Every structure is written in C-alpha cells, then in structure tokens.
Simulated assay, not measured.
Amino acid sequence: MDLLIVDALDQEVIHWLESRHSVRVAPELADDPREFRQALYNVRALILPASVAFSARTLQYAPMMRAVGRINAGAENIDAEACLRAGVEVVRSATATAQAEAEFMIGALLSMLRRVPIAGADGMLVGRELGACTVGLIGMPPAARAMAAMLSGFGCRVVGYEPSLHASDGVWNRWKVAPMPLRELIETSDALAIQLNYFSRYHGLIGERLLPYCKPNQVMVSVSHSGVFDEQALADVLRSGRMAAAWLDSLEPGALDEGHALHGIGNLQVTPRLGSTTRESRLRSAWAVARRIDELLMTTPSGAAEFRPTVPGEPLDLAAEPASR
C-alpha cells in the first residue's frame, strides 16, 4: 500500500491522492494503537493526526515507510531522530499555519490587555491598548513575519529574539523587527508572543533566570511547546501578579492537575492548539503535505522501495545498515 491516512482530510485532497496512489483512509486507527501498528507493515507513507505518536518502536512495524505527514499542530510526538536514521521524511508545511497563528496571538493579546485591567494614573482599574505596547516576539518562524506586519498596523513597537539568527541578519530589517537579547526583551516588553520552535536544548529556557524580571503587568501568549517554560517560575510570576496574564495554546497533559505548579491559577488561560487550526490553514497544509508525499512516492516507485525482511516478532535495528543493497 502506498499511503495510509489516519487524519481527517478534505475530500478533494483525498480524491487527488487516490487518483495517483493506492490509499487507505482509516481514521478509526487513531483510537486503536494495536491495529494501527499492524496496519503499517506494507505502508510507504502515512498521514497522522496530532493525537497519534510515531516513535522508534512504531517504526519497527513499518519496514517500508518513507514519509510521515502531519497536517496541523506540532510534531513533538514524532521521533524525528529515529525517522532520520530510518530514512523516513517527516512532512509538514512550514508556512501553512503562519497566518492562523499570527491572528490567534494578536487576538489573545487584545483579549488579555482589555479583560485584565491594571491601575491607571488616576487609580482606576482600566484595560490597555495594543497600539501603545512594545511587543516582544520570541522565536521567528513564518508566523512572526505575518504578526509583525499586523502589529505595525496597530502602531506597536516590535522587538524580537531568535537564537538561530544573528543580530546583523537581514531578516530583521525585512520583517521590520528590532533584534534584542532575550533578557532585555522580557524586561522591556509589555506583551510577549512566544513561537519558538522547540528543541530539547530549549527545555525550561523561559524560567527563573528570566521571568522574575519581566516588565510589571506584562501579558504573554505562547503557541510553542510548553516545555520551553519552567512551570514553577511561570506559576510564581503569575501568582505574584507581576505578570498580569498568560495564555498557553499548548500544555502537557496533567500540568493543571492538583499538586502541579500551574494548578488553580486564575490569570492563566489554556487552549488545545487552537492557534494553528483553522479551516483555511488545514486546507493549505493538507495540500502541501499531500504534494510532498506524492513527490516522494513518485520518486521511489513501490517496486523499487527498499524492503528489509524481518522475522515476525523480531525488532528492527533501525540504526544498522541493511545486510545487502
């Protein structure tokens, strides 16, 4: 079989793929891990929803796999290193969700600035205007470009931090964002928009060395994986009132349960990855993923695909080279 689709896709995209490849559409496999693994044996490409992980162990059941596609949301539960070792490409669209995420973050900032009032010069509790704010962008993915353009229309000052970009890089001028060291950005921004691509080296990056020094009454929205935060440091700065409000669009399961640092914090709002998920972004992403998978399948016809025979029940050593070519 060329392609197994476990996610919900637009019918036009599915029909296009079916006209070019052998396709099985089986969204029910998302709720049956055992059947899902058994379905992978002769599959060359896969499109998965965010709820289904793809690990090194799963790869043991997929000796012909060449591509794993993800339409929306993050790919944190896809083992990218195991896929790389096995020659499996993780297919995602880098730009399809940019507009959706930018609109979501601006909407979140507008909401928090108005509904979490602070004391004005006359002592009254009042909301704030986004146009009067310095907005700090942490991470510069495609959504940051769209967001910077929108924020300029409000009259905001926009500053940014991206660990992979030098301050002299031309991207800053083209996107009209002023580069700034991370601590200085957090200390001076009235609002933070965090969209940093998550890697293990960034775990807990935004924590006790930075958050206690945030600008008073700051608001923050994040579409990044929640692993970029030190949860205790975030809880402390929210409970103390120094940070007025925070909105996380991705949070690890159980993080709000009793006994955890973020439990019961009234000025924290959490949503389940709404930022990147719109009708338009899903359609853009579905077509981008479908076309790339089609390209990969056409490049390696099914008869030419490398097949590594296995003994039933014997795990594959994915790091080893095949015995013969």
Rank of each mutant, 00 (worst) to 15 (best):
G69V: 06
D236H: 09
Q195H: 04
A304R: 15
I186C: 06
G259M: 11
C83I: 12
L151K: 00
V126M: 09
V219P: 01
R242E: 11
G313N: 08
A304H: 13
I118L: 13
R115Y: 12
R128H: 04
H203Y: 11
H15Q: 12
L59C: 08
A108T: 08
R20W: 07
M64D: 14
V68Y: 09
L192E: 12
P33M: 05
A73S: 15
Y198Q: 01
A305I: 07
M180D: 04
L109V: 05
R92T: 05
A67L: 13
F199L: 13
L125K: 01
G275F: 05
L151H: 04
A323N: 06
A94H: 06
G120R: 06
P272E: 08
P163V: 07
M65N: 06
V135Q: 10
A319C: 13
D230F: 06
Q99N: 03
A193L: 00
A193Y: 08
R279Q: 11
H166F: 12
T310V: 14
S276E: 08
G160H: 09
G131H: 05
R325H: 14
M105R: 06
M140I: 10
V223G: 07
S168L: 12
A323E: 11
V223L: 07
P179R: 09
F199A: 10
E76L: 10
L113F: 14
S240I: 08
A30Q: 14
L29P: 00
G160F: 10
V158K: 02
